[in-house]
Computed example of a mutant assay.
Amino acid sequence: MNRPRVVVGPPDSRGLREIAVGGKTVGSAWSLRGLRRVLSRLGYPADLDVEDRSSILWSGGGSGTWPDRTWWRRSVITLMMAGLLGSMALLVAVGMPDAIGALTFAGRVTGFLFAFAGVVQGVAAPAVLDYWGKRQLKFSGALILLGTFVGLATNGLLLFMWLQEREYTPYVLTYLPLWCWSLWAFQLLIRKKAWQGVPYPKQFAAGVTVTTLLATANLAYSTLYQPTSAPVLFDLNVKFGTPRMDAKQPVIHLPVTFRARNSGQIPAYIISDGYWIYGVSVEYSSDGGGLLEWRKTMDAGSDGSKVGRYVKSPTREAIGAARFYGPGNWLEPGEQYVQERVVQLPKSAEYDVIEADLVMTLMEGPRQDRRGVRDPALFLAQEREILLPSQ
């Protein structure tokens, strides 16, 4: 059976050789085994003599000329896809919380840009197989170049921001490796001129550069400055329960409940906290002379807020104190912490007022991927309960 002669072209820069039959390209091959697979699909016998010049014409090298370095090509494919998918996972994880729940429109736009950049890299990952394969898609190289350029810009910005603050985040171990990968991948694609095959390559490069620079500038502004406007909203509450007399001892048990709730939309970092319980004894002035004492304390630079017209010479004694939630902890949005305590007072204690103070010093945490240091905000809640003799 007469068959058209097969023409095997010279290897290209990657070692791939084009196969033509009857003047029509029917495929390409990296090796002699690949050539036989293509020919077998066309009905050629599996034992075809590749040295028979009447059957196969070799151009630019004989049957032993296959310069493809399979191990190198597969290594590049693996590294390219791993870097694009890893960078995609990082950008989506960083961007989605802001895209969904940022307090400001600019913050949501920034989060969306992060997530969209990750999606671009996810789309570029499968194109790696085509670009380092048979290159059947005209835009595969440009798509990979775009994804790599986005990774270089965003990963570099994240690394720069972390170097400014030097605070640990779960993502910090990915910043430097992904930035180094994007730098390697970008220069490799530039050397291979991956943009070739794209119509108007200069306009494409200019558009990608301008868009990425604008997105990076907006990201830097929103990330570095916008979170400072997000307020810390915190609710503190102190409530006394009903005092009860001990059945065996001359002791009064006074329940008190402390509650803290993050009512805002950003995490809050606890710098310090604690509660204090005081017993207050006062002297009463029927002639209204307490205000004269208030003036004296104010002139002396002391706090005279506990002095009234008919109350003077208050004595405030601490009868209990402890940490509340503990410094170094975080309270996420909507999270609350409650602590119940029982204060024991001797029945003979002559206190006119029992006071309880809950104090927390908080620092805002605007983003999950970077714990920025902000000016601490102080929140104070105070509840007072009067113990009457009948109680």
Rank of each mutant, 00 (worst) to 15 (best):
P126T: 15
L291T: 04
M161K: 14
N329I: 14
M81S: 15
T257D: 14
V150R: 06
R17S: 02
D246Q: 02
M81C: 12
E332I: 06
I56F: 02
L84I: 14
D246V: 00
A318L: 11
L90D: 05
V208R: 03
G9W: 00
L84E: 10
A117Y: 09
A377N: 11
P4H: 15
L146H: 02
A117T: 07
V353Y: 01
G122T: 15
G308C: 03
G304I: 06
A205I: 14
K202E: 10
W179D: 00
R374T: 10
R323Y: 01
W30D: 10
M360R: 03
T110L: 12
A106R: 06
S281D: 12
D299W: 04
R323P: 01
T25Y: 07
A29C: 14
V232E: 03
R17E: 06
G289S: 02
W294S: 02
I190C: 06
L358Q: 07
E167P: 00
Y200N: 14
I270C: 13
M245R: 11
Q203H: 06
P267H: 04
R367A: 13
G290M: 05
F139R: 02
P243W: 01
N155L: 04
T211F: 15
I77Y: 11
R371D: 11
L387Y: 02
L387Q: 05
D98N: 09
A46K: 13
L345C: 08
I270H: 08
V26N: 02
F105H: 15
L254H: 08
S28T: 01
N155I: 01
P170Q: 08
V26T: 07
G308I: 03
A205L: 15
S182C: 08
A153M: 15
R53Q: 07
E335R: 12
L388A: 11
S302C: 10
E364M: 11
P243C: 02
P314K: 06
E350T: 12
L137P: 04
Y269A: 00
L176I: 07
E350L: 11
S13E: 03
T65W: 01
V150M: 13
Y168F: 03
V50C: 08
Q249K: 09
D369S: 07
W330Q: 11
L183A: 10
L213G: 06
V210G: 01
L173F: 09
L42C: 08
T78R: 08
K296T: 05
L214Y: 00
Y310T: 05
W181E: 11
S87K: 03
P45R: 12
G111P: 08
L159K: 05
L331E: 03
L157A: 09
A127Y: 05
F258C: 06
G279Q: 13
V26G: 00
P10H: 04
T361I: 05
V109A: 04
K24W: 00
G197F: 12
K192Q: 08
D273R: 09
E317P: 00
T110E: 15
V26H: 01
G207R: 15
V128D: 09
L91M: 13
K312T: 06
F116A: 08
D130G: 10
K306F: 12
V373D: 12
D352H: 05
F112T: 08
F204R: 13
A230K: 04
V256H: 11
W294G: 00
